[in-house]
Design a protein around this nucleic acid. Structure first.
Lengths: 144, 144
DNA sequence: CTGCATCCCCGTGGATACTG
DNA sequence: CAGTATCCACGGGGATGCAG
């Protein structure tokens, strides 16, 4: 597998904003499509959960299914297929009599898990504030 | 990472989050709902883009609309409402003759923008790898 | 300018049943 | 055990029109 890192997009600094060419009308970076596709994957219903579980160690299909519990086979399959397609997990089939399939995070997947966990961490830390804000907002709306 | 159980006030009615059936798997962390709600917000189609734009400075409704270009008023309104509800942006109305509304990121919103930008950065850096993997996967599937 | 309401299409995702 | 196929309900989200 070859890694093409030849063209890193120009950015200002890690804490700043991406470069905004001032002549551009609508906000359309060429990256936006791709970035959005990654964010959409992260934001879907199950991907993050699966990544978290695989982050620890490789796991089998039903192992994942049992751990999540409320996921359907279909969605677990689709989620894993999507992750596999993006090169984030590997799928290893053991042709034993009871079929066994292991799913494991690739290095790329482990790399993704870091920002994802950072986001998850932030979410957990600030969940009380968000829920307080939600309640306050809902109360304001309800009393009108 | 160790997920620890912290109690979450049971409020599911106004958030749109579904009630969890009682027979869930062993990985039933009550944070998961809340964390997932944050991740879903981040993963939706427009939120990240809006956060990025507001990150720089407060902006008006149509200013955002023009910058994004391809968003409908409806979705921009809904996106901003959601962010406002979560305490991530403030909405300031100026009762002038042409109505004017400013949206600004709260400190909480700025805090969220950091992990979000980290994720966006990762996505941009590794987009080539992901797209390569996608192409390879699709080719494998097409030749079968 | 801002924002709500309505209609409507379509993708996501859940339930179920069936194959290797 | 792992995966596929089918059906279907729900909600996201675009287009348009109207109101404050």
């Amino acid at each position: 597998m070859k890694l093409e890192r030849s063209d890193l997009p120009a950015r200002t600094e890690a804490t700043g904003l991406p470069d905004l060419p001032p002549g551009r009308g609508p906000y359309e970076h060429s990256d936006c499509k791709g970035v959005n596709s990654v964010l959409s994957r992260v934001g879907d219903k199950w991907t993050v959960l699966v990544i978290m579980l695989l982050c620890e160690r490789p796991r089998r299909f039903n192992e994942l299914k049992r751990m999540i519990g409320s996921i359907s086979q279909r969605m677990l399959t689709l989620t894993l297929r999507g992750l596999e397609r993006d090169g984030l997990v590997t799928r290893t089939v053991f042709p034993t009599v009871p079929p066994r399939v292991d799913y494991e995070l690739t290095p790329l997947g482990h790399g993704l898990s870091k920002p994802v966990q950072a986001l998850g961490l932030w979410a957990r830390e600030h969940l009380p504030e968000i829920e307080t804000a939600r309640s306050a907002f809902d109360d304001r709306g309800a009393s009108s």
